[in-house]
């Protein structure tokens, strides 16, 4: 929307980060936070690995409360994610911002990172590491939702259940996706704080 109207409107009017992206991004942060914290509580009811999450950092108070949070926030995560994907594709923003992907550029960016000189000067463009890590985060969220469907209603989604290797395997995949998302978020927030102007852009739309 914003990108297409560029020609007709004076440049200053179109925010660098469209409003729908900012709204869906921050709603997603809220949804992911609730999903992860309540998910830890649900995990604790029957851990699949020999550890549990300290109750104090979980959400919901007890299993039933955690389930209520989880099954409420899942709607926000799902609907908001769908809106993001639809708008991102329909406006052509996805194609413009993310593609083409290039291994050469990735290699260059990795070398720059290792030399601690990765640049993000032109904030209207993502570097290859950003492109891939955002695509990775989106993919992890999609997998999270799909494996979540298998756990939520395994009898009603036979095809998904088979694709995820059955109920118990889906549980492990669901957990691993959570780890990916938490790890991504950690690095992502550090990066945002290192380049605070991007944070400003994600909040008010201008860098």
């Amino acid at each position: 929307m914003v990108l297409r109207s560029k020609k007709t409107k004076p440049k200053a009017e179109a925010p660098a980060v469209p409003a729908w992206l900012r709204v869906t991004h921050w709603l997603n942060v809220a949804a992911v936070t609730v999903m992860v914290l309540s998910g830890w509580r649900i995990y604790d009811a029957s851990p699949i690995f020999p550890f549990h999450f300290p109750a104090g950092i979980t959400l919901g108070g007890w299993l039933a409360g955690a389930l209520q949070w989880h099954f409420a926030a899942m709607w926000l995560l799902f609907v908001n994610g769908l809106v993001y994907l639809i708008l991102n594709t329909a406006t052509g923003r996805m194609k413009m911002k993310y593609f083409p992907l290039s291994l050469k550029e990735l290699w260059r960016d990795i070398k720059q990172t290792l030399r601690l000189s990765l640049h993000h000067d032109d904030l209207s463009r993502y570097n290859m590491i950003q492109k891939l890590s955002y695509l990775f985060a989106i993919a992890a969220l999609v997998m999270m939702v799909l494996s979540g469907l298998v756990l939520w209603k395994s009898v009603q989604f036979p095809l998904l259940r088979a694709l995820f290797g059955g109920y118990d395997t889906a549980r492990v995949i669901h957990f691993i996706c959570m780890c990916f998302i938490v790890a991504f978020t950690f690095v992502h927030v550090v990066m945002a704080l290192l380049v605070p102007r991007t944070l400003k852009g994600m909040v008010i739309g201008r860098f």
């Binding site: 109750a55 950092i57 979980t58 919901g60 108070g61 007890w62 409360g65 209520q68």
Partner: peptide
């Protein structure tokens, strides 16, 4: 603070 709390 709600984390770790009960909602009943």
């Amino acid at each position: 603070m709600l984390s770790g709390c009960d909602f009943t």
